[in-house]
Nucleic acid binder design. Structure first.
Lengths: 267, 267
DNA sequence: CGACACCTTGAAGAGGTTCAAGAAATGTGG
DNA sequence: CCACATTTCTTGAACCTCTTCAAGGTGTCG
């Protein structure tokens, strides 16, 4: 499903241990290169189209108006906020969530480096969900009118924007499938496999990960109560499928997880 | 949520009783106007941007390569099919559904006149879901490369495409909320309210509708078994909230349904 | 008119929730 | 740096909603 992204970060530990992160490339460079520049960004392959000419690349650098740092727990945008920009995540993990009028809410996704958030705001010029940083984070702010302008001129960018939105639609189909037809164990197994796969695509381990979200947030995303999440983790531990130390997870048996998600095919 | 569309069809009964439908405008017109033309289409306000110049309108007419009739039960496209075009529904209702490898499937939506399907195919040039007609239907086929071409030149079209995709993302957020945090009664009530609202936006009754899908399909969409759908309908009937005669539904107490969906706010 | 798909209803059972209590980790202020 | 408050996580027990299995009814179409 997810494109096979070959990404080698210069500091592959940053998302697992961001607090211990070395200075980023931009921070280390000379003043003039402090200018925001997609063409230099080590996440380029994740959020920008491939195969651009140098001219096109230079123009795309103008897409990012500024970078913004978001402290853990703070919202990048909230339901009702005026929509102006899309955001490309540079570091950190976000959750997005929607709410009913009577206060229940639902996490609709967890987003990490290279992913784009804010697409929900385009329809009505207002955001319809909250995006909250689950750890200190940094995003590139891309004013949407600039995106539209530039994508009229750079075909690859235009198509890239369409693909990003389509990918989000397809991702949500997957979540609907999960919420509509899977049982607790299957949901959590699918969740873990998805997370670890995305982290792996970013240069991290295939078997170890640190959750950036609470059991309650996982539960909200997966449509189950936090107690059920906890119990299901415990069951996986009993079965010897994973090791759980609070938020640190080590997957001991990937195949077992896959079998849980897809009983028929894998058995 | 949904735009307040003021649409007056010339034959307001067609979606409720399509088999008794009078000839469409195009069918009645002289040969030269048989050419597919958005500028003439009585659904234009639903699927095209507003406020175009006549020049722009004429160019948009070229978007639709052809119209295609789909018999009830037949797929417009299937998971795995090569993606080439988006489809604007002229008449009829479709369901879209995704499937796991081991055969379980999940209805991801029901689409009706003026709505656009096929967006899932953009990311990987292949469709990832099936779109099946629930009754005899007709769609406008819009090759996606033409859409991209033209939307580089017509800003309103470009923005319209973005809005359509964003709207779909927001809609799916709503479904996730439903699947993740509502109970059976709430889901079915929300489903009925949504359906009747969309039908009303198309010129139909606010209180009566004919379901085009089976209990099983409703159940799949809402993440519940067909028996539970049936039982929940029966409960609504007992409570005097709706009248159910097979697939014909009459809503007797809209407020009661709203209260079921939003207990706190409405009580 | 008979076959088939679809819908309804009942009874038993499973899976997940709710409520409750305690343990572990994390953050804060002195 | 430690004590305390707070948040987060785990586990148990009772309960409830929805599912499963089963049977019969209704409607539709060739």
């Amino acid at each position: 499903m997810l494109d096979a992204i070959k990404y080698r970060g210069d500091n592959a530990s940053h998302a697992l241990a961001p607090e211990a992160q070395a200075p980023t490339q931009a921070q280390r460079m000379s003043p003039q290169s402090l200018k925001v520049a997609c063409s230099n960004c080590n996440l380029r392959e994740l959020c920008m189209p491939l195969g651009l000419s140098t001219d096109e690349l230079n123009r795309i650098d103008d897409l990012v108006a500024l970078r913004r740092k978001i402290k853990r727990g703070v919202a990048l945008f909230r339901n009702g906020d005026t929509f102006t920009s899309l955001f490309a995540i540079r570091t950190g993990v976000f959750k997005t969530c929607v709410a009913t009028e009577d206060g229940r809410d639902q996490v609709t996704g967890f987003q990490m480096a290279g992913e784009i958030i804010g697409l929900d705001g385009i329809v009505n010029d207002h955001h319809t969900c909250d995006a909250v940083a689950l750890e200190d984070a940094e995003v590139c702010v891309m004013p949407f009118n600039r995106i539209e302008e530039l994508s009229r001129e750079v075909n690859a960018l235009q198509h890239h924007v369409h693909k990003i939105m389509s990918r989000e639609i397809v991702r949500e189909h997957g979540v609907m499938l999960l919420l509509g037809s899977m049982r607790a164990e299957e949901r959590l197994a699918a969740f873990l496999l998805n997370l670890v796969q995305r982290l792996h695509a970013r240069g991290f381990s295939q078997s170890e990960l640190t959750l950036r979200m609470t059991r309650e947030e996982i539960g909200s995303y997966l449509g189950m109560k936090l107690e059920t999440v906890s119990r299901t983790f415990s069951k996986f531990v009993e079965d010897g499928t994973v090791e759980v130390k609070q938020r640190h997870i080590r997957i001991l048996n990937t195949d077992a997880l896959k079998r849980i998600v897809n009983p028929q095919v894998c058995l």
